[in-house]
Design a protein around this nucleic acid. Structure first.
Lengths: 165, 165
DNA sequence: TGCTTCACTTGCATCATGCAAGCATTCCGG
DNA sequence: CCGGAATGCTTGCATGATGCAAGTGAAGCA
């Protein structure tokens, strides 16, 4: 049997896993966010096998997060973030904030990020509830959105409009 | 050869991929955030194979994001988010915000989230630069943190203290 | 022109994934 | 108390992914 194709699911988060859920993909994006552009630099900074790196870079290009940008030489190229790829940066920062808190050894985070213009540490805001505290899953009501199918409606109940009368 | 063990890397984001980077893991967490607790509900809501689900749930328990909570019956149990798991919610919301923008079909997102207390849609703030605009990767300076090794220092330059004199 | 650099590809062994069936234990109705 | 149902998995196997190590083709450069 083949592997489940997340790209065929309706849930956008699931579909994003079709590219982001592949092994090394998040780490390849980390490198792109940190300024890596050339194949050999990705290879060195990640410690990844070239066949896997080539496959991931191709995935990320095909899904529109990276693009191959020719170098002045003509034949050589580098991989640059697209608007779509750049737009993933907040999600990366949120993941990094969580990882720095929960997956860091006693020595502390490996890298710190600061605003280049001001020198201030990058702050990652979290969604807040009405009481001003970080929003927890139990504070949230899940409702079917416009893209919901029958199963999602059955599971999460009426539409937002219905709920508000 | 075996697979690269991300858990052995120093980068917290890489280490988090040891658990979050496994296939289905993010989607299992999605289900936990949306209130799923029982094995068969995970199985049904995800469309996942039971052997894979069992393996993922075990991973998430072992990494401390979920815990097995016995039911009153005694033998049956459910899977509940821990503090560590709950703390991943902002990162999930950021991922969902990106996926809703870039991975949604024309019909729109599958689910909408709202604050249960106020009925207001959940807003996912993004880090802002000094100019008040969403922080882009190129707005950021990467610096070695306390946990940096030689390679990270060589790559990203002096420490924050050194940079500020 | 020949060596170096760059961006991969290839063959192969090992491991992950997922199907479908099945198992062990507990629960529940008659 | 017994048999069927429910629950939470496990198992065997075929297929696909991963990653090592070596290698390739094209471009760059002295």
């Amino acid at each position: 049997m083949g592997r489940t194709d997340f790209g065929r699911m309706r849930c956008p988060v699931a579909r994003s896993m079709a590219v982001l859920g592949e092994r090394w993909a998040m780490l390849v994006l980390r490198e792109a966010f940190y300024g890596t552009t050339r194949f050999d630099a990705f290879e060195r900074n990640l410690g990844i096998a070239p066949n896997i790196l080539a496959a991931r870079l191709r995935d990320l290009v095909e899904h529109g997060l990276l693009q191959k940008a020719p170098l002045p030489e003509g034949a050589r190229h580098e991989y640059r973030l697209t608007e779509k790829g750049r737009d993933f940066f907040p999600a990366y920062l949120a993941l990094k904030a969580w990882a720095d808190r929960w997956m860091t050894g006693p020595e502390g985070p490996l890298v710190l990020l600061e605003d280049a213009a001001t020198g201030r540490p990058v702050e990652v805001p979290v969604p807040l509830s009405a009481t001003g505290r970080p929003l927890r899953p139990e504070d949230v009501r899940v409702l079917p959105g416009p893209g919901a199918g029958r199963a999602t409606r059955a599971r999460f109940g009426g539409s937002p409009d219905a709920a508000h009368g």
